[in-house]
């Protein structure tokens, strides 16, 4: 009993100290003087713009990484080709690499002295300090999640159902749409949620490539930092609450998906 109690209190205490206290404190500070200051802070045009930019980036990065993630998962699991081991390892790179390094590498590629920079500038395309750069950085760091969720599930379901579909006359795409995709749908959904959370919260890589110009290239995370640096703490807390709120929303979505996934798993057993 004592061991069990130790585990329970130990884990809960740890969570409270490391997770709940800091996040709770943010909420408390944001609403310290009621709703009004919070509302004023987040209806500031720069804050609204930052929120919009973050959502715009997320709404492109997530579908991109979802489609790529599913295709990449299929390639890794279903097609034994030379080089697939390398792809498998490369997919994890964004997890291992610090976002600052990612930002820096984009800078080196697309900067004025970079490999693609001059050519793109000549053709009127601006990557750094603009939307494309922010999108590239966000897509890079949120790339692994769908792949990592989809690969083990694809391995587990095996190829028999797909082979059965083939002998029943279904073409490859029909098999994918009617057999493979439904079988991996919860893994994809889970990956989408994680990708979304990561995209919303990205800071390091974007900080380097966006320039963080208020009202133009500033994302919500950068807005929080800028506000904090300018001693406008109410704005910082309010925007942080907004970010935390979005994150909690995606987490809730995820926990809503999970039990259904388990029910589905039992049904399949």
């Amino acid at each position: 009993m004592t061991a069990r109690r130790l585990i329970r209190f130990g884990s809960l205490g740890y969570l409270a100290l490391i997770l709940v206290a800091p996040v709770g404190l943010i909420f408390w500070r944001a609403f310290e003087h009621g709703w009004h200051p919070f509302w004023v802070a987040i209806s500031n045009p720069d804050a609204v713009h930052a929120l919009k930019l973050t959502l715009e980036v997320t709404l492109v990065a997530v579908p991109l990484n979802t489609v790529f993630g599913v295709l990449c998962g299929l390639a890794i699991v279903r097609h034994r080709m030379p080089g697939m081991g390398l792809v498998n390892a490369l997919v994890d790179l964004p997890m291992a690499l610090s976002p600052v390094v990612v930002g820096l590498s984009l800078y080196l590629l697309y900067g004025r002295q970079g490999w693609f920079g001059p050519w793109l500038t000549d053709h009127g395309v601006r990557v750094l300090f603009a939307y494309p750069g922010i999108l590239l950085a966000t897509t890079f760091v949120s790339l692994p999640f769908v792949v990592r969720e989809v690969v083990p599930v694809l391995r587990e379901i095996g190829t028999e159902q797909e082979e059965a579909a083939a002998t029943l006359g279904a073409r490859a795409f029909t098999t994918f749409r009617r057999i493979t995709l439904p079988a991996i749908r919860w893994a994809v959904a889970y990956g989408v949620v994680l990708t979304t959370a990561r995209s919303l919260g990205e800071f390091g890589a974007v900080a380097i490539v966006s320039g963080g110009i208020a009202g133009r290239t500033q994302t919500l995370t950068q807005y929080v930092q800028a506000s904090y640096d300018n001693y406008s703490q109410t704005s910082a807390y309010a925007a942080a609450v907004l970010l935390a709120g979005l994150a909690i929303l995606t987490l809730l979505l995820m926990t809503k998906l999970r039990p259904r996934e388990e029910v589905h798993g039992n049904r399949g057993a």
Partner: peptide, 27 residues
């Protein structure tokens, strides 16, 4: 060719009816 797998390879997310219909509906 009709093929019956050792472990039947049922389409788990489809009903029995949809399973049997699959070969015809995909055509």
């Amino acid at each position: 060719v009709g093929f019956v797998f050792q472990h039947y390879a049922p389409f788990k997310h489809m009903t029995v009816w949809e399973n049997v219909a699959f070969g015809l509906s995909s055509r």
